[in-house]
Design a protein around this nucleic acid. Structure first.
Lengths: 214, 214
DNA sequence: TTCGTTATTATACGGTTGAATAATTACGAG
DNA sequence: CTCGTAATTATTCAACCGTATAATAACGAA
């Protein structure tokens, strides 16, 4: 019966370790497998420590949810702002980033679905969902507006919103399908499908890196 | 301490009651709230009875998952075959059915998400997902092919599949958003957005009930 | 060094879980 | 009418859950 050796870490990395372990558990074992004991084991600490950093297990789950969503939005936003200044290229890269790893992978989708299934159950999760959804859509809406302006069209607010909603739908849907049964799309790469679809939604505006007559 | 009165029912209705109670629990309390005791209570039976009709709780969850998915696809298929013989009207009704109750409601989405989050965890759930996805897509693919034929275009297999994938994406994405935060779309009804989007994806083919020049 | 504070571990508790088994009741065959 | 079979209830069990509390070790200030 030797006592587990102490290992002190800063609050930042401890919280990060615990959240990462939480997400690992959920993605690999499901929500029911994400127990305080299993999470603590994977984080390399004892279960009691969780309630030293989080007021409850649910609190930790909510923080984990928030981190997943902000991580996704910031990842695709960064991809859009990466190198191009061309509005169409930015939207193009934004869409592709949504449908390629690390955003489009099984782990992320499992986490997203597990949390979504709790949105209607727990108001705290509903609020996190609403925040992250609006953040994502506002980014997309701005990208669409820039594309329309560059194409010489008037950036009508209502049309921008409607387009953003529809494009968001295409992205979400293909993200889910491609991640869950990705092996079915080896001959129909989804980023390509998405780009073509969005071009159609935009009324024929090309999103190719090198503008080509349409 | 009076003994609970016996109430015998046929195997069919018992299984149905138990599955319905299971789905109620999941949608209202989440997967962690779907315990054998709560499910049995809602079905009006004793917990032990569950394992008389299902080899395990997981087995019952899988049957419940299968029922949810077949219910959804059959509902939208029925909507497509309801009254119209016009291919475009059929596709139109199919899409609208996907984005209106009972398919598009919070309960169904919660169930879907809860199960999806288990697809990567349990191979049995993965198989059910694959089956239901392929069933849905094949229905949609046939509808798209008929529309293309009627429009005088060659129903190229690859194009049909690609269109079905993209349309499926639009439907899925809008279904999720509309169901989770439906109150945001009171001024932008999603069925309308979906129809306009699919028309764009189809290259301008109108899905309106009364064909109009495009 | 000393000592108070706090991060971390260890242990305990009441309640719940899925499953297994035993007891009881309804129903159908004969 | 009887009795065997199956459906349903009742009870039990070992394991596990989230949380609370106490013991201990590390760190920083003085």
């Amino acid at each position: 019966m030797s006592r587990r050796p102490f290992h002190r870490a800063s609050e930042a990395v401890r919280r990060q370790d615990l959240i990462r372990a939480t997400l690992d558990c959920i993605s690999e074992l499901g929500l029911r497998g994400a127990t305080v004991r299993e999470i603590a084991a994977r984080a390399g600490v004892t279960p009691g420590l969780i309630r030293h950093y989080f007021s409850s297990k649910d609190q930790m789950l909510q923080d984990a949810y928030r981190e997943v969503m902000t991580g996704m939005t910031s990842a695709v936003s960064a991809a859009a702002d990466a190198d191009q200044s061309n509005p169409r290229a930015k939207l193009h890269d934004f869409i592709v980033a949504n449908l390629t790893p690390p955003v489009a992978d099984g782990r992320t989708l499992s986490l997203w679905a597990a949390f979504i299934s709790h949105v209607r159950v727990d108001p705290a999760f509903a609020e996190i969902h609403l925040e992250s959804y609006l953040a994502f859509r506002s980014v997309l809406e701005a990208l669409v507006a820039d594309v329309l302006i560059e194409a010489g069209e008037s950036p009508d607010a209502k049309r921008c919103r409607e387009l953003a909603i529809a494009i968001n739908g295409v992205i979400d849907g293909l993200w889910i399908e491609g991640t869950l049964v990705g092996h079915l799309f080896s001959e129909t790469p989804l980023p390509g499908v998405a780009i073509k679809s969005v071009e159609a939604l935009l009324g024929g505006i090309s999103l190719a890196a090198k503008p080509q007559t349409n």
